[in-house]
Structures are given as C-alpha cells and as structure tokens.
Amino acid sequence: MTSVRPKLKPDTPKTITAWDTATGRVVYMTADHGWTSDPAKLGVFTGEAGEDALEKAAAQEGIVTDPYFMEVSEDGAIAGRETLRETIRAVGPTTHPEFARAETS
C-alpha cells in the first residue's frame, strides 16, 4: 500500500519517498529506480514516469514500506504544501539538532 498524502497532478515534479523496511529510515527513489537516504540524490519524475516509478516502488515491499509521491521542484528540492513535513522527514526532528542526519548517502 502507499501512504495517504495529498494528490499531486501528473505534470507536477515529484519523487517517490518511503521507509527502509529493516530500519524504518527515510529513503528516496533515485533516477534509476534505486534507493538513497540522501535527498540530494533523489530522482525527479513527472507524468507516466512518476506512475511507473511508484509502481516499481510498490513492488519492492521487502525493501521499502509505504512508498508515496512527494512534491519536489524541477531541480529536486522539497516543494509544495508538505514542505515542512518533508523537510523534517529529510533532516530530522527540529527539536533535536543532534539527531540530524550525519550521513547523506
């Protein structure tokens, strides 16, 4: 299954984000449909490529959990209505700076 998040239009730039099944850590789909924990390396998808990427993510349930579309700008920066939530997911809790992600890949 995928998380229930706001629907995005087909032409809105987006990536796929999910949780690593073994650890629960946040991951993003790369352009070649692999996974990275580094938001700087996420792939940007639009239109059918996005649907295709989500389908591929959903088929990798042993590796990732609850994949869903996350809005990004064309250059891959977190964007849209859920910017705050997704920034917190990407960086860590705002209240524990020491928990900020140390590794970016």
Partner: peptide
C-alpha cells in the same frame, strides 16, 4: 516481513498488536 514474504498490509496489524508504529523518521 524482511524477507518480503509478508507485505506491509499483512504485517501492519501484526506489528501494531506488538506496539510497533511506523512514524515520520523511523
């Protein structure tokens, strides 16, 4: 679950019965 033999939809009720949630970061 880790072997991919259980899907999240199947695993979720089992993990919840054991107090395991999937939250924002982990």
């Amino acid at each position: 679950r880790l072997a991919g033999e259980l899907l999240e939809d199947e695993f979720k009720p089992l993990r919840l019965q054991n107090g395991v949630y999937l939250q924002l970061h982990a």
